[in-house]
Design a protein around this nucleic acid. Sequence first.
DNA 1: CTGTTAGCGCGTTCAA
DNA 2: TTGAACGCGCTAACAG
Lengths: 336, 336
Amino acid sequence: MNGQPTLKDVARACGVTAMTVSNVLNGRDKEVGPETRKRILKAIDDLGYRPNFAAKRLRAQKTSAIGMLVLDDVPEFLNDPFTTQVVAGLSNFATEHGYSLILQGLRSESPSTVPMLGHLQTDGVCAILSGSPDTRRKFIKRALGLRVPLILIQEEFDHPLVCSLRQDDRGAARAIAEYLVDRGARRFCYLAPSAHWPAISERIAGSQDVCNKAGCSLTVIECGDESFEATQKAVASSIGTEGLPDAYIGGNDRMAMATIRLLQDRQLAVPEDVRVTGFNAFDFASFAAPSLVTARSDAYEMGRRAGIEMLKGIELGGFEHNDFVLPVSFVAGQSA
Amino acid sequence: MNGQPTLKDVARACGVTAMTVSNVLNGRDKEVGPETRKRILKAIDDLGYRPNFAAKRLRAQKTSAIGMLVLDDVPEFLNDPFTTQVVAGLSNFATEHGYSLILQGLRSESPSTVPMLGHLQTDGVCAILSGSPDTRRKFIKRALGLRVPLILIQEEFDHPLVCSLRQDDRGAARAIAEYLVDRGARRFCYLAPSAHWPAISERIAGSQDVCNKAGCSLTVIECGDESFEATQKAVASSIGTEGLPDAYIGGNDRMAMATIRLLQDRQLAVPEDVRVTGFNAFDFASFAAPSLVTARSDAYEMGRRAGIEMLKGIELGGFEHNDFVLPVSFVAGQSA
DNA sequence: CTGTTAGCGCGTTCAA
DNA sequence: TTGAACGCGCTAACAG
């Protein structure tokens, strides 16, 4: 009696039944007299009544929650600005539509991933993956065990319960490469992580498209885990064996900036001596010197879009369209 | 009958009652014969039974969820790396302890903040605030309306249901200032956002402590919303009127890096001509040239700590200690 | 060791 | 226009 007031408490206070109160709360106004209605609303306010969601959910057989999963190797699973923007966009959308967002990071290789996943009870799941293709596929299959719509960011998977949201990586990569070719570059190095993400493959393919047409060369440098150190080591080694290219095309801004630092330490001017481009521009990139040429994907918007498709998927119990490719804008910095 | 199997379904399949199955699931092994137990576990596995959390919660009068609120002016509420690390730490801790983390961003000034808050139903709430002191206090009072333990990051508030988790900003600021004094700097400018956060005040106070003792001067430059542009504008104006100091002490890494860029554009060498320091180092700072001297707060650990205190708070229905100050480590970059 | 009963808070269904 | 009964899935408290 001393906890949160229930529907019954409100009803008692008004001398009506719980049902009547419920009708008022759910906007079934025509079922209730305007006079009674007023009295009830006042009582609700006075008592500070708030509906119990657990009860509602149990009754409705619906959680009104969306799960956001981030598969990552490290515990700090929100390090990537692309990820955080997606999460923010989805979270806001969910909140605005009466859903709560349950955020969970999962270590890609951990065996505890399975029980953790089982603990998730939501009407739909959105996931951002990382790790090897094998790890990712395994994860997807497990996530499908939840039997709810699954939206994958930057990852394809053919299944009626799965919807992919991707950005036009190939097109963006083409734009970057064309920009460089226009400025006279002919010999390119592509900075890629050793793990072969689909998105990275697309970006390489886009650069290759342009190189083929323009008769340029493209060498892929594998930068391990794309960390600062790994990238610099890989680039240094490449310079040792094959010399300097006209431009480095970064698979992302991190690798690009690590490369810029390396070149600067060697007294090379960027972009005068060598050009360097990035990918997935985020705020912080503008703090780097010199500014990067980069593609900016609107990750926040992608998160919102995930919300939109998710609600459709939940309503329909599956997806009508299950692959969307979103545009990417091209951003030329001031001095690159 | 075609949805998820329930406890009853499992019981029926084994020819026992739901209660017995429940006993098995909750580890009350002594209540159940080992033979029956085995049979039940098999049936659970065969049917792919998973407990319904909504029912559990309703029964237990406990949500087993923690709310993470981020009050921000912009929709992209996960832009700040400090915030994301706290969220990641708390999320992991919650997951490991059988709680789910519900993430919600709130626009500081929006009137919809109130209903949004009401939609949150969790056993406890952790919040990172921003905006004016007035906005923040208003928010705290509303959050207290939820009548659950509230943990505030970098924010004090005297109330039995509130616990503050702060870092030792003053101590860290002292360490930075001493570092600069040791290297001969005497005239300082402090880069602060125009909004007066408690944390910023502490940092200024720490610098002032050192300046007082060493007989140095300290001027505070208000950098508006601490954006790249606002910071550069404020610094430029300060240089115009008061000339160049020996060192800029950044209220955070963003402002510090904006300042470095400005100085470099004016052909000033950092740190040879002017020193610049940052605050709250995060990964990306290492990509900036030159490396920053900065204080690194372990925000991830702070998130985990929030989880620890939250669980205590939930169990006790309030906090025993309600102000914790966590240490901050000092990080000297390679070339600053 | 196992079964029965009852109720968490809400909403649908049917009756008044 | 309002009321009563029932059940969503689970578990505490007792019986047997």
